[in-house]
Amino acid sequence: MDELKLIETVFAEPDPTPEAAAAGRDRFLRQAQASQTGRLRRRWATALPARRVIMVGAMAVTLTAGLLVTEVGLGGSAPHTPGNLLAAPPADAKALLTLAARAATDQGDTVPSRGQYVHTKTLAQQSLYTKDKAGATQYTKVMVNEERWEAADAGKPWLSRKQALSATGPAPRKFWDRGVEDILSESSGCPGKPAYARLGAWPTDPAQVRAKIVADTGEEPPRIWSSLQSLIRESVVRPSLGAALYQVAAGLDGIVLIRDAVDVSGRPGLAVAMDEGDGRRSELIFDRQTYRYLGERTVITEAKKVKLPEGEYFEKKGSVNGVAVLAVDLVPGLPEVSPKASRMKIPC
C-alpha cells in the first residue's frame, strides 16, 4: 500500500467549506428541479385545482382567496410545484442563510418604473394584553393584515393600511377591531422614508452592509441580529440587499437552525433563530424548498413582567409575535384611500 498511501497524501484536498457544500447542493437541487419541470407539469395538471379548493377552505378564517394566490406566487412552495422537489434540509443555520442568499440573488429586485408603487402585503400576529375586572392580565392573539404602497418617485405620498382580521382570546372586539386604518404620509422628500427609498441607497456588498449596521449597533451579535431582523423584513422589496443581510447574519455567533418552523400565516419553513437572552427567541423563517424569506417570529420563552405607563403585565410564555410576507408587487398607483384616513406630514 505504500505508493497508494503516497497518492493519498499528495492528492488529498481540504474538506469542502460549508459554503461550498451549500453551493453544490443548491446547484444540484436547482438543476434537478429544472430537469423535472416539464414532466411534473403534465403529471399534476389535474391535481392543482383540487388542492386550491382545500387550501381556501382551510385558510378562510383569516385569509381571503385573493391573498392565497399571492402567497403562493411569492415563493412559498406548494407540495406539487417544482420548488418542492428534493427537500432534505440544509445542515445548519449558516448553510440555510447561504442558500437563502443565493435564492435572493436569483430573485432579482423589484424595480418600479416612474410613477409606479411598490406594494407589500403582510400578515402580522400581535399580542394584546388586557385586564379583567379583578385586575388579572389577559392575553389575546390578534391577526392583522397590513399593506403598504410606497412610491418609486421621491416626494410622492405613500400609504399604510391595517385591518385586524381575527382575534383569539378574551379581549372585547372593540379593543382590537378598528376597521380599516389608513395612514397617508405626505412625503416631503425626507431622506430615510419610506423603506423602498431608504434601502435603495444601501450597498449590497456584505462587508459594507455589515460595517453600516455595526456603526449603529456595535459588535454585540444580539444587537446586530435585532437590526438585521427589521432590515430583512423591509428588504423584501430589494432581494439583492436581502442576500447581503443573510450573509451578515450567517457570520453571527449564536444562530441555530430550526427544522420545523412555521410562519404566522401557517406556512411551514426552516428558521434561523437566536436566543436573545431576555426570555425571547427570534426567528427568520425561510421556505423549505425555495429558501425564500417568508417572515419573522419572536417567541416568548419565559414569562416576563413588562412595565408600561398604563401599568404592568406578564408576557405569556409561548406567545408569538411576528410578520409573514405574503406579496410584493408593483402597482400603477395608490388605491382609494379611506375618507377617515390619517394624513401625516413626515417631519425631516
Binding site: A12, E13, F28
Partner: peptide
C-alpha cells in the same frame, strides 16, 4: 456528497469542484 467531493477534488483540484459533484448527482 463529502466522499464524492473528496474523490473529485483529489482528481481535479478543489476549485469549484462542488459544482462537479452536483453535476454527477444530476
Amino acid at each position: 456528497f463529502h466522499e464524492l467531493y473528496r474523490y473529485l477534488a483529489a482528481r481535479l483540484g478543489s476549485e469549484h469542484v462542488e459544482d462537479m459533484v452536483a453535476d454527477a448527482f444530476l
